[in-house]
Design a protein around this nucleic acid. Structure first.
Lengths: 163, 163
DNA sequence: TTACGTATTGAGATTTTGTCTCAATAGCCG
DNA sequence: CGGCTATTGAGACAAAATCTCAATACGTAA
């Protein structure tokens, strides 16, 4: 089984707060860690039901928030409506590049932003906790507007990169 | 009258797109430029009605989007629900520092983030357009948890600063 | 292992936020 | 001024998330 470390972190989080380890919580954990990109609560619910699990919408919403509080998931708004969730791995903070044309989301990790965050917080007497950086622009394909067929390769969306 | 330059920009924007200059649009423009911080659509609607203006909710929502398209307003999600709007001054892009304790929002301008945005986009073949950076942390007052009475001064919230 | 107290769940109602409809109104242009 | 049509208003509608409360199941202690 993958995600042993993260699951332990989740169980520890629940124990520390005196909250119960329920079948629904474990199932939701497994589901979000089996998903690759960003996914919304409704899709997550549908995916779990498709696997034969019987779970209520309210439970999914409630426990997604719990996962976010535990630091194992992140809630963000990359589209125009609704929140999207993604699982997190310990200590790994990444940001998003969103194409205004096709909506494609590329994740990236930038040491620069971490330094910048510290600098800005120092200047304003804040203790930094976390940040959200979203850059909107046009991806190579959308920037060329009318792309000639068969010329551009089709790179896999949602890959991770370092800057 | 203030905001002459911005109002001209708005009128020009409408003309360029062949859209009409209506009383409601001008009133919304005046209202959002009379507001200082971030405000949501419902509050804006209430404020306009409190001034004796007769305007519909749909019109406020529609024209807020129009102001955003014109570049004179920005729509963001600083709280947990709903969108907040703020007026913009030509060419000025700022970001937000949000206190996780008291919710106070401090605006800042950072040349560093602009450079970073360009660098990241170059690395991924994106043409940069705009970005949203939100840093969450604890402000000086909240960081001290239990603040001794009368010790801390009460700085005005929502001020603008440069880094 | 069982029994108990209580956190958690499920199903649907409800709230919240924003969009849509379409007849009436009012800009804009000749 | 008069006509064409974008825009507005009022409320219906839709989407997303939260709330309610009885039923269930987790954790603890005997």
């Amino acid at each position: 089984m993958m995600n042993v470390r993260e699951k332990e972190q989740f169980l520890g989080f629940l124990r520390d707060r005196g909250q119960r380890v329920t079948g629904e919580r474990l199932a939701l954990f497994d589901e979000i860690f089996s998903q690759h990109g960003h996914i919304d609560a409704e899709e997550l619910l549908a995916a779990m039901r498709a696997r034969g699990l019987k779970i209520s919408r309210a439970t999914v919403y409630r426990n997604l928030d719990l996962l976010v509080e535990s630091g194992l998931a992140r809630k963000s708004r990359l589209g125009s409506r609704g929140f999207l969730y993604e699982h997190m791995h310990a200590g790994q903070q990444h940001d998003h590049l969103v194409c205004a044309g096709c909506g494609r989301v590329v994740e990236f990790v930038s040491p620069g932003i971490v330094a910048l965050q510290a600098e800005i917080c120092r200047a304003h007497g804040f203790v930094p906790a976390r940040h959200t950086l979203q850059i909107a622009g046009l991806c190579n394909r959308c920037a060329e507007e009318a792309v000639p067929d068969g010329l551009a390769s089709a790179p896999a969306p949602g890959r991770m990169a370092h800057v």
